[in-house]
């Protein structure tokens, strides 16, 4: 995966809580057998109407957010289905950072495995970001090494991230290769009585 160290981009404010993975990418687009090309289906039912025309009221379609790469949303973001197509769609669309007060577990993991940085900030901090970005184009600067989010208007927030995942993201490492270095231990475990074949 693509490493992520410092990142700056335009904010897209999505003021909704419990955004589930069915919204992020509806089920009819889960039949592709590739990992790429899902961006066109991101938030499909919110972004496009029945005829496939852009819904102008939806935040992603507003011109000030067209090039957004940092998504800010309400709590419990990414709840529901385990579909990794959700982070694939976000990434393919151009989002590298998602900021919310809280995330659903599986989605959070899926982001980390695809080089998307999920950042939890407090309700107040997210509220401020949503408010600042309302109706206008605003930039955010994310520094993973320093675990900090800042903007030019004096916003500054620190965030927590697990040190292991921080290293994985900073270096863009592949988890399977790392685990396979422990092949001997896995084999030893398998030979113990625990595993029945």
């Amino acid at each position: 995966m693509e490493p992520i160290k410092q990142f700056s981009g335009t904010v897209c404010p999505l003021d909704r809580s419990n955004v589930d993975t069915d919204q992020i990418i509806p089920k009819q687009f889960l039949k592709r057998i590739e990992r790429t090309g899902f961006g066109q289906f991101l938030f499909y039912h919110w972004r496009l109407d029945e005829e496939g025309k852009e819904n102008e009221a939806f935040v992603l379609n507003k011109k000030q957010y067209k090039d957004a790469s940092i998504l800010v949303a309400g709590n419990n973001f990414g709840c529901g289905s385990s579909r990794e197509h959700a982070p694939w769609a976000l990434l393919d669309y151009g989002f590298r950072v998602v900021i919310a007060p809280s995330f659903a577990d599986i989605f959070y993991n899926n982001c980390l495995k695809n080089g998307i940085l999920p950042i939890s900030l407090s309700e107040e901090q997210v509220g401020e970001l949503l408010h600042t970005a309302e109706g206008k184009q605003t930039e955010l600067f994310v520094d993973l090494e320093q675990q900090k989010v800042t903007n030019n208007n004096g916003f500054s927030a620190e965030f927590q991230i697990d040190p292991y995942w921080k290293q994985m993201l900073l270096n863009g490492w592949d988890e399977i290769s790392l685990t396979l270095t422990l092949d001997e231990q896995i084999t030893k475990f398998e030979k113990s009585a625990m595993v029945k074949g």
Partner: peptide, 30 residues
């Protein structure tokens, strides 16, 4: 690779849904 894997917990098995990257991880490393 399905969030409703939690179903199997009914048997006292530790069962969870995983994403596709994790599916690949399990296929390769068990």
């Amino acid at each position: 690779g399905d969030s409703h894997t939690s179903t199997h917990g009914a048997f006292g098995a530790l069962a969870f849904g995983i994403g596709t990257s994790e599916v690949e991880h399990v296929l390769a490393t068990q």
